[in-house]
Design a protein around this nucleic acid. Sequence first.
DNA 1: TTTGCGAATGGAAACGTTTCCAAAAAAACC
DNA 2: GGTTTTTTTGGAAACGTTTCCATTCGCAAA
Lengths: 354, 354
Amino acid sequence: METFPKKPAKPRAEKTRVGAVTLRDVARVANVSVATASRALTGTGLASAETQKRLIQVAADLGYRPNTFARGLKTKSSKLIGLAIHNLENASFRVLAEVVQTRMRALGYEVILSITSDDPGQERSTLATLADHSIDGLIVVPTGANGPQLLGLENAGIPVVCVVRRDEGALLESVLAADPEGAYAGTRHLLALGHRRIGLIVGREDTTSGKERLAGYLRALHEAGLPVDRALIHHGRYVPETGVTAANALLALKEPPTALFVANHESSLGVLRVVSERGISVPDDLSLLCYEDTPWFEWQRPALSVVDSGASEMANLVVDRLMQRIGGAANGGREYRVGVRLIERASCRALEGR
Amino acid sequence: METFPKKPAKPRAEKTRVGAVTLRDVARVANVSVATASRALTGTGLASAETQKRLIQVAADLGYRPNTFARGLKTKSSKLIGLAIHNLENASFRVLAEVVQTRMRALGYEVILSITSDDPGQERSTLATLADHSIDGLIVVPTGANGPQLLGLENAGIPVVCVVRRDEGALLESVLAADPEGAYAGTRHLLALGHRRIGLIVGREDTTSGKERLAGYLRALHEAGLPVDRALIHHGRYVPETGVTAANALLALKEPPTALFVANHESSLGVLRVVSERGISVPDDLSLLCYEDTPWFEWQRPALSVVDSGASEMANLVVDRLMQRIGGAANGGREYRVGVRLIERASCRALEGR
DNA sequence: TTTGCGAATGGAAACGTTTCCAAAAAAACC
DNA sequence: GGTTTTTTTGGAAACGTTTCCATTCGCAAA
């Protein structure tokens, strides 16, 4: 005969919440109507203090837990927020995820995690699904290709706050790192130590962070009255390999830099490898300054000095902003920048012969 | 009592989904009843092929998206699964999160991320909240103190699968690393290279992984007919500091080991630091074998050899298992072990004078 | 005593689905 | 052609909340 075409024909696991205590049950036991039970428990203040107390007691006794579906159906609020980020490998994103989830839980929200791989297609589909789940808000590191859809969420009443990257058009609120200042501060630090030839390894020039960090570097050089040597500047993707090629090129220069500013976090690994392979001693032969702190930077020998872009600070701020928005604040399209911090460890030394 | 929202008193952001196309609208436009519209769109096969096609078209035209709340209210299924893990810093957990989220999304589920910090209290409260959200399933790295609650979820019809750690009592399905075999294979590898004094740094003996890895190490030694020197074995918490104290102790031995098996991932950083501080050359003076691969192991100089416990394999398997369970499979309480893999890089060398 | 008024309550109507049940239509059988 | 069976449909009842509206109650004011 034929196959069974239509139904998935699954055994359908028993899904009847055994104890499922409903609001009705609570009301019945407490001898009030469902309406007052609801009022008492949601604490809208429309129930007498006495019945409220009693109902809370009864609810606790019975182990009543409100049904999220039913509640959401009426209130349109899910107590769920979406977090759409590129990956979890990058330390900033990881911290973002941890902080957002922890704080949101404390605020009574759960977090739906969504990894976009920086791929607009994935972002698009995930945004749709998140909307279907009626999230109460969204924190997103935008890929930059789905601006209209993000705006669409806003129009549908779902507050959106961008983080780490800005949305194109900058119509949404966003919380960003102070990259220009970070790169500026880092470069200044190296200059103050007496370095004059400072190699820079940084993200592609068509990314905001790549552009901004370069700008900070240039400004510091400019202020110090130093010429910029384009040979000292290397752009590349956010991967370790970039560090390898860039470091190799820089160290092969006939007049090599005395310090490297690795302003592209992912490249640090590659740079470290090259340095070690070439038998270069840090910081004696070469000073190294990295970007965006990560636990192993501190454990490395020598411990790596770093310009930290304050991932956890960003995370906290973005949570604050989102909560404001959920609370009713209008979208001001404002841009928030969190301060950077220079963490001196042991990978940069003062130049003597200056 | 967290379940009862007190007075929000917020300005209540406009939450009326502007376009909110309901099933009714679709039905009206297509000139059928809501019932058939539902049947056609959910594809239960109870609608004629022709109307089904038509309705799908109409729904698409109107941009209809089913309301999750209403649907969940009836079906009791949320298309949400919970993922409760200790943190995102440990490479295994990170990979777990990435893989689970990616695969689950492809299967039509979203993932609620929940970080427990290995704290039973947090686990307890998060499990309750996840249940409130009617998750369709749960993947959990159990802290080990909330067994009854996990069982409670199962009884409430929510399939639970443990990963990385077993639940106490082992009543739930779990997907684990083949730790005994991993430690055994690693030790064998070092033995084969001619090492006879092999230091072991491993998790506390009251954790399953600590116990099992120690067992693997002992078995390999035993098979090789070697005596075990308790001075070569160090237990400790899963933190870098453990590596520091253990490595220092081991290297200070009057007859120090020629190889270190760092079977406690987090300790690797500490060991590396000590080794570097003492000016010990790896692998010339000391062979190093780590546990659980992580990207920077490969980029380190020398690249670190490692026993990988197959985090992504575990993640994939645990997803498979959960889907089976959601599909109706009964909880067999089975224990699945995924194979380990020895990745030889450059941190172990053969001993000559053997 | 009546009137008025706020506070507390209950009844019932939503919210947008899925699904039971019966009816209608179509197809199959004899 | 009539009768049964099968397929396709529509009406309406859920699902568990919140909330509008009307009612009741107690109590102060007239």
